[in-house]
């Protein structure tokens, strides 16, 4: 099956601090891929390298068959990214942020955005500074989905969302994936991986390890989060 993401030998150092070491990863088209690991393990570094926020030291990243450095701008046309913090411009209204994201893409996404706002109950008239974290996350989901990308990358998407919105979010993912999209989900929530992901990998100390099965029990899962001395 065609690989949407192909990472080979990715290494990124932050001077004295470790980033990621020799990461190899393949994500097939149509997959919902769980990306797990403790805080500081290197998940965000991998994602940020894929999106061109970081310049990596060694290795190569291919996304949708294109080189992540050379074809950076082209790749982002077909990627919907939701960062974990979901920050926007405080003085703008929700509708302005959503339209701004579409305008930069040079697309009219009004119809899809309206559908998403309705499904996620987003109040588009409010100013960003009036929103809670959960509501900012919903705006971020709309911005990541409104252009119907081929690849979704979500960094801890459900933190701050109420259970009903979490379910709506995963229903949306399911619909887009059925239409041919691929999804990478960075999360700490084991139940999300068990229930929604088809494949998963875990990062620990900057190194990536594929999991054989996404149905892992909590004790086995938590072992990855423990320091070697605690085990």
């Amino acid at each position: 099956m065609e690989n949407v993401i192909k990472i080979r030998g990715l290494t990124k150092n932050y001077g004295k601090n470790r980033g990621v070491i020799d990461v190899n990863l393949d994500v097939a088209k149509g997959d919902v891929f769980g990306f797990l690991g403790p805080n500081g393990a290197g998940k965000s570094t991998t994602i940020r390298s894929m999106l061109g926020f970081l310049r990596f030291d060694e290795g190569s990243i291919s996304i949708l068959g294109m080189d992540s450095v050379r074809d950076h701008e082209k790749i982002l046309r077909d990627v919907g990214y939701m960062p974990s913090e979901a920050w926007f411009y405080d003085t703008m209204r929700v509708s302005e942020v959503i339209k701004y994201a579409a305008d930069v893409r040079g697309l009219d996404c009004a119809q899809e955005a309206a559908k998403l706002c309705e499904r996620l109950k987003v109040d588009t008239h409010k100013k960003i500074k009036e929103l809670s974290l959960g509501n900012r996350k919903k705006v971020s989901i709309v911005c990541a989905m409104q252009h119907r990308p081929k690849l979704f990358i979500f960094d801890e998407p459900t933190s701050g969302l109420d259970p009903l919105m979490q379910r709506n979010f995963f229903n949306l993912i399911d619909e887009y994936v059925r239409d041919g999209a691929t999804c990478v989900l960075s999360t700490h929530v084991l139940s999300e991986v068990n229930r929604y992901c088809r494949h998963a990998a875990i990062m620990r100390d900057g190194r990536l390890m594929m999991l054989e099965d996404t149905n892992i029990d909590e004790d086995a899962f938590l072992k990855y989060y423990m320091d070697e001395e605690e085990m």
Partner: peptide, 14 residues
């Protein structure tokens, strides 16, 4: 400074 860089630079603009 305002943590909006990830939003802006995840859009297809160099």
């Amino acid at each position: 400074d305002g943590h909006t860089g990830e939003f802006l630079l995840s859009l297809p603009i160099s």
